[in-house]
Design a protein around this nucleic acid. Structure first.
Lengths: 219, 219
DNA sequence: TCAGACATTAAACAATGTTCATTATGTTGG
DNA sequence: CCAACATAATGAACATTGTTTAATGTCTGA
């Protein structure tokens, strides 16, 4: 079965090549310029060939979507593990904002764009939601436990276990923390913070990172 | 000059008709279905006629953009003026979230979509930024003073003048408040909060509205 | 060797935003 | 009232999208 293996390998390499070209165009030229024809041209194939490896354009975006989330997760966890659990939430927030500001096109595809046909598995963000399930009444354990959001939730839980006084329940705290950092970078990327001088914006963002903790903890 | 007046009036009526048709399509069918041809069909004219009244599609979106911001501003100010200044910030936050959740397509166009060619005057959101100007060193008074963001900033200032202890300076406080509410609704509209049962999400959002104050005030 | 599976391509398709020559209509000056 | 002109509306056409397909080539497996 060696030939079939090679074929499959070549197929995956082609897929990766297409994804790489798409990601490159996406980052360097922006989304509108990332057309099927441009991707095909980048890898020096005809447009039709793309459809041998991906069902449609959305499937390419899906793949990039997951790929970018993996990058975010790595960045978040790396930053989180580098500090002790008491500072973890702040470190995560800082890493999240840095990721978004340094990879605005990634963040665009991940959180800002409207995907419609995206299969919203969100396999790498969702936290476990085991709070009261409305229908069955029993807790539902999510199979997912390696997402950034989940990790943020764990960091908050660790802080609580370390003695910090939470203002709200765990899920609400996590939502507030996530909303705060997402809100800042989303507004910034969309140009709604342009009226602030860059230096001052940096200071405000720095304060905001500290603000994550103070907004969800009493002490 | 009565005939010229009538012509100008008819022209504005046609513009309004086009905008109304576009807004209707936008809300009922969503953005992708809001094509020039669909708008033209809605008002029973040929597609080319649209270009007699608008330079291109982006100009139509610009007009809707401003129109929707006017609606948001009215909603915010109405909610704000209905309560005394101590509760104003919370009322504004609640109104902001309600507007976004009840008019997701509006919010989509206003804050979520990527406009690129949009002339970012943002004539109805921006606050005055009179903090230290990097170049000249002197404060720059913005001509703009009726935006929702500006109004939120004033509400925070009122709260401070009423004796509340701010955790950060005024601009940072305003940014945090706005980021928090925008973050929540942006994540929700993009489907990132789907794992929460709707009832529970409502409770969290309710907590979040209270959280605006507690995140920027010490007391 | 040969038949079938597969990859690649160019061409074509439909739908988009946009432009343009043509037609029609209404306005204005004499 | 008529002739010239400005303007608006139209349908056809254009370029650019994503996508499909028939044809061609290539490679694999028996």
């Amino acid at each position: 079965m060696s030939i079939a293996d090679r074929k499959e390998r070549e197929r995956q390499e082609m897929r990766q090549g297409i994804l790489q070209a798409a990601a490159h165009l996406f980052v360097t030229e922006g989304f509108p310029k990332t057309t099927i024809r441009a991707i095909a041209s980048e890898i020096e194939y005809s447009p039709g060939t793309i459809y041998t490896y991906f069902k449609d354009k959305q499937e390419i975006l899906n793949a990039l979507f997951h790929q970018f989330f993996d990058e975010l997760n790595i960045a978040i966890r790396t930053a989180g593990e580098a500090v002790e659990s008491t500072n973890r939430l702040t470190a995560i927030g800082r890493a999240y904002i840095d990721f978004a500001l340094q990879n605005p096109e990634h963040y665009e595809l991940m959180f800002l764009m409207n995907h419609e046909r995206l299969e919203k598995n969100l396999p790498d963000v969702s936290p476990e939601v085991d709070c009261f399930d409305a229908e069955t009444g029993k807790k539902v354990e999510s199979a997912q436990d390696d997402g950034s959001f989940q990790y943020m939730q764990e960091a908050i839980q660790l802080a609580i276990q370390s003695g910090r006084q939470p203002r709200y329940d765990l899920h609400t705290s996590t939502l507030l923390a996530w909303s705060l950092v997402h809100g800042i970078v989303a507004l910034h990327i969309r140009g709604f913070l342009q009226m602030y001088p860059p230096d001052y914006l940096q200071i405000m963002i720095h304060h905001a990172v500290d603000g994550i903790s103070s907004s969800i903890f009493l002490d």
